[in-house]
Simulated scan of single mutants.
Amino acid sequence: MAEDKTHFGFREVAAEDKAKLVKNVFDSVANKYDVMNDLMSMGIHRIWKRIALQLSHVRYGEKVLDLAGGTGDMTLLFQKRVGDAGQVVLSDINAAMLSRGRDRLLDQGISGNVQYAQIDAEKLPFADNQFDCVCIAFGLRNVTHKEEALRSIFNVLKPGGRAIILEFSEVQGSLLKKTYDFYSFKFLPLMGKLVANDAESYRYLAESIRMHPNQETLKQMMATAGFERCEYFNLTHGVVAVHRGYKL
């Protein structure tokens, strides 16, 4: 693929166009995002996120960047861990998603240790060595230049800091893979049409998962970006995986 091309789902598009196409997807689904997450995963996404929290080893007083944080699920978990002495920055490139996340947290009375930023994961506007943990949950597959995002994450982490990447990955087992493919390409778009009035965005979701680097590939990409002690943990037979790497 030429350097100025990338994938938007199964389609090959100009790299400069992908961010706009992804924006359109999340502008469309923002209002139904949380409902659809619960329906699509039958609520299991909440368990995946709690496991990612545990693997992050975030402690009281630390500073966390929640990249592509959307409606704030991970921020809600992190802000309880860091307490009043810590800080969580909820960030997203999409204004509609970030606005829903901010409203949700404020409605729950959460304000003191959470800040908000509309930012691009490929070009983080922070000085080096700022965060104890950077988490990106279900967002990396939508990034155009994943290598740039990983390097940017590495730069803003403090020495000893951790990157946590929670993302859909490669399902393990041929029988489960066939079942998962049927669910993804037949059931998800139908559910998207019925609940969110948007089948195409959920068809893109299924396609983007298949185009995302698998577990071993992403692990190597993290190592190339400078991370050490890189490892991953398959959840639900590889439907998702948590990758962790350290800046030492």
Rank of each mutant, 00 (worst) to 15 (best):
88 V>D: 14
114 V>L: 08
111 S>V: 10
91 S>F: 02
108 Q>W: 05
78 F>T: 01
86 G>P: 13
81 R>Q: 15
100 R>A: 02
82 V>Q: 11
94 N>Y: 01
89 V>C: 05
98 L>H: 06
104 R>G: 15
85 A>I: 06
111 S>I: 06
100 R>D: 05
78 F>W: 08
101 G>W: 10
94 N>I: 02
112 G>K: 12
105 L>T: 09
100 R>V: 04
113 N>Q: 12
104 R>D: 13
105 L>W: 06
110 I>R: 12
84 D>V: 03
110 I>Q: 04
96 A>K: 12
99 S>Y: 05
75 T>I: 05
109 G>A: 07
97 M>P: 08
80 K>A: 01
106 L>V: 14
88 V>W: 11
105 L>D: 09
86 G>S: 11
99 S>L: 12
84 D>I: 03
106 L>W: 06
113 N>P: 13
88 V>L: 12
115 Q>Y: 02
111 S>A: 14
88 V>M: 10
115 Q>G: 13
100 R>T: 02
108 Q>V: 00
95 A>M: 08
84 D>M: 05
111 S>M: 10
106 L>S: 13
83 G>T: 05
99 S>D: 13
84 D>Y: 02
114 V>G: 11
92 D>P: 07
104 R>W: 15
97 M>N: 03
112 G>N: 13
87 Q>F: 04
97 M>D: 09
103 D>K: 03
99 S>M: 09
113 N>A: 03
74 M>K: 01
94 N>H: 01
105 L>A: 13
110 I>A: 03
111 S>Y: 06
85 A>Y: 04
115 Q>M: 05
96 A>V: 01
82 V>N: 11
98 L>V: 12
97 M>C: 10
79 Q>Y: 01
78 F>N: 03
78 F>Y: 15
75 T>V: 04
101 G>H: 08
78 F>L: 11
107 D>Q: 12
108 Q>K: 15
87 Q>K: 14
109 G>R: 08
92 D>K: 00
109 G>P: 12
110 I>N: 03
84 D>N: 10
80 K>N: 10
81 R>K: 15
